[in-house]
């Protein structure tokens, strides 16, 4: 299976999920899945800065806000699939695991890996987002109209 068959959108989704995932959780899930294939480096893990941009007024011209730390790497499995890891922060092992999952998701074990790694990460992220949204919702103001002075 090559990348075009996999579909760019699906790949964007899992790469983003892997970038945001807690490194320790990803490591745990991968270990349980027993996915540790032999691979060669195309790009050793390296940490750098990405300049984050915003827009004036939220919608106008772009401006530079400041950088965030990102670690990236690229590797190739023995079976030929190339995986890229781009993760937030400075954890090289996290980037390596993200690249491994990216490569494996393009291969024959994709469905098993989706169930073992991608789905639990997505569920955990959705649950934590939902919990934060629920706390925010509890702080939503409800206005009551008091007696209005009409005279």
């Amino acid at each position: 299976m090559n990348v075009t068959e996999v579909g760019t959108e699906a790949r964007q989704r899992w790469m983003g999920l892997l970038a945001r995932a807690p490194a320790a959780r990803l490591a745990e899930l991968l270990e349980v899945a027993g996915a540790a294939p032999v691979h060669e480096w195309l790009r050793m893990p390296e940490t750098g800065g990405v300049m984050v941009r915003g827009r004036a007024g939220g919608t106008g011209a772009p401006f530079n806000m400041g950088e965030m730390t990102v670690t990236r790497c690229a590797l190739r499995l023995e079976t030929g699939e190339v995986g890229h890891g781009y993760v937030q922060g400075r954890d090289k092992a996290h980037a390596e695991r993200a690249a491994l999952v990216d490569a494996l998701m393009q291969g024959p074990g994709a469905e098993a890996l989706r169930a073992a790694v991608i789905a639990p990460l997505a569920e955990a992220e959705a649950a934590s987002r939902r919990e934060r949204a629920a706390k925010a919702a509890a702080t939503k103001v409800e206005f009551f109209t008091m007696v209005r002075g009409e005279d």
């Binding site: 390296e46 940490t47 750098g48 800065g49 990405v50 300049m51 772009p62 806000m65 934060r132 925010a136």
Partner: peptide
């Protein structure tokens, strides 16, 4: 920061898609 290689730059962030913890307006009650 000065020791970090610059990997690149992001797309401008979409603050309209922000998952808001807080959001208040002093101009529009509703």
């Amino acid at each position: 920061r000065t020791t970090l290689p610059r990997i690149g730059h992001s797309r401008p962030v979409e603050t309209s898609a922000m998952r808001c913890d807080r959001r208040v307006s002093a101009t529009f009650k509703d």
